[in-house]
Amino acid sequence: MVTFLMPRFVPRLVSFEGMGRRSASVTERNIACLRSMYWVVMVSGFVEPVLYLFSIGVGVGALIGDLPLPGGRLVGYAEFVAPAMLASAAMTGALSETTFNFFGKMKFMRLYEGILATPVRPIEIALGELAWAMVRGVLYSAAFLGIMVAMDLTSAARALAMFPATVLIGFAFGALGMTVSTVIRSWQDFDLIVAGQFALLLFSGTFVPPTAYPAVVRWLIEVTPLYRSVDLVRALSLGPVGWTQALDVLYLLAVLVIGLTVAGRRMEKMLCK
């Protein structure tokens, strides 16, 4: 029967206390609804970059031969493409969870309305969903790193260094995706996201070094988040690591913080009218 427990102690002023716990409960909800079918979705996100790696990295790479790195060292084309595919896998994992799924839960399942009637706050939903997107992104990255090491496209030690970088990339894109989700109006807008994501995949120094383009285009490329991500993991994979990579990390951290703040605020505006 319903009985009454003493209310548990709750901190007085609005604070960060309990924030982690409440965010984790949102992540937990996603784990609870992991069903057999969901694995299909998860596997598909992993297969895509692997296909690119084999078709373009290995296939087209055989026609292209070696490429010079900024340091002057020559590397095989597959070695050049693989880190970019890794960054792209981290991006895809984070974006698919924070755009399509997040939007659906917010607008159509009215899931967050229910959650917001509990002590959980909008920013905590955002954090919890982001953490979940990370779980997915991290799985993609780890699997892809395994393939890279197995194919001798990088060393195991370098793979270990790249792993935290992919987590950061995932976080940044997750926060970005969430912000975009709070802005878009309908499912039709997702076509734009897909197109944007594809453009990023093609032009972010992934298959071709940005130096191959005219200066203006190159500047444009170099400010995109995927380019900064590719630059970071490629340097970690093939060397040399320098100040540019510190800039990449700062850039991604900024995207993460700004994205999360904006997403939390906009969610509050939309759901707590």
Binding site: P7, V10, R12, R22, E113, T118, R121
Partner: peptide
């Protein structure tokens, strides 16, 4: 005190 209040409310929308 939104979160603190909501902790003691039950809501049936």
């Amino acid at each position: 005190d939104g979160p603190k209040i909501r902790a003691k409310l039950g809501v049936c929308p």
